[in-house]
């Protein structure tokens, strides 16, 4: 029981990060039907942007931890958004509407390009940051085992919740969100009704990247380290989350992310830590085979 509650807390924290990345996959898939293979690496770039800004804020400008993190969050979202905007503009837009495999290959190329670019400009070693919010808030004690929630876990969950609320507002209540939903349904018709489809798609990439940047900040806060190769596995897991929730569904992505986080921590705690990635990948395969529309996806009727 104690272990279970502790792992529940850890799982939800990890799941928040996956959920934030999953939003980028699900939005892009929803609007242009493409798996943005490079999204995991965009998240990694977001992590590096956060790391570097954080160092500028703390060691150069001498800001306190909280103001530094807030500024890093905002700057990270902007810069990572610009990265994804450029990627879409350069590598995906010219291929829109052409051969179906071309954007996928281009995205895989972009993924290889991004991780190796970071390796070249920032070096191949792990980048550690000083630990922050190290205190733990004890919740209850049973059988000599203290269940606690770390301050950084609280911060991660609160920031995730706030970001999701803002994001939810943008998608549901603003004209940009309306334009996105219109483009999802029918791009030609949306264009005829005066929606700037190119701009809407670009903004979708920017928003997805901004969420990935938030995830990047949370990631270095949680693990205290980032590496150029950290994009792939969280990327695939976040994609699993998006699929599990039903690709194209935003609440699905978040809930899928939380589920993946929980499954990963529970698996590590109760079974074998070595096979935790195998568990995540197997879950992906099982979901796609038995529940291809995910938990919240729309069923697809085959048109004959």
């Amino acid at each position: 029981m104690e272990v279970f509650v502790q792992q529940l807390i850890n799982g939800l924290t990890l799941g928040s990060i996956y959920g934030l990345i999953a939003i980028g996959y699900t939005m892009v898939f929803g609007i242009i039907g493409m798996v943005n293979f490079a999204h995991g690496d965009v998240f990694m770039v977001g992590g590096f942007v956060a790391l570097l800004f954080f160092m500028v804020m703390t060691s150069w400008l001498g800001l306190g931890l909280v103001p530094a993190l807030l500024i890093v969050l905002v700057l990270g979202m902007i810069i990572t958004g610009l990265w994804n905007w450029t990627i879409e503009r350069v590598a995906y837009r010219p291929l829109r509407g052409s051969f179906r495999l071309a954007p996928l290959i281009s995205a895989i190329g972009m993924s290889i390009l991004l991780s190796n670019l970071i390796q070249v400009v920032q070096g191949p070693r792990n980048k550690p940051v000083p630990p922050m919010f190290t205190d733990v808030l004890p919740l209850f004690e049973k059988n000599g085992y203290t269940v606690g929630i770390g301050y950084k876990q609280i911060v991660i969950m609160i920031v995730t919740a706030v970001m999701l609320a803002i994001f939810w507002y943008v998608v549901q209540k603003t004209s940009l969100g309306r334009a996105q939903r219109a483009c999802e349904q029918d791009q030609k018709m949306a264009a005829l009704l005066g929606i700037n489809v190119d701009r809407t798609i670009s903004l979708t990439f920017v928003m997805g990247a901004a969420m990935a940047a938030v995830a990047g900040v949370m990631y270095i806060m949680y693990y205290g380290v980032v590496n150029f190769s950290d994009g792939f596995v969280p990327g695939v897991k976040a994609f699993t989350a998006a699929v599990l929730g039903g690709i194209g569904s935003l609440p699905g992505a978040v809930i899928g992310g939380l589920l993946i986080g929980l499954i990963e921590t529970m698996w590590s705690a109760y079974f074998s830590i070595d096979y935790k990635d195998v568990a995540a990948f197997s879950l992906l395969a099982i979901t796609l085979v038995f529940l291809p529309t995910g938990l919240f996806g729309r069923p697809e009727v085959e048109k004959v």
Binding site: S98, F99, M110, I112, L113, N116
Partner: peptide, 21 residues
């Protein structure tokens, strides 16, 4: 050799842009 995979990724993107099929 450090730039090998970097250039490989770049080549993949450029060749798709040049000849998507």
């Amino acid at each position: 050799t450090q730039y090998r995979m970097l250039l490989f990724g770049l080549a993949m993107v450029l060749m798709m842009l040049w000849k998507p099929r």
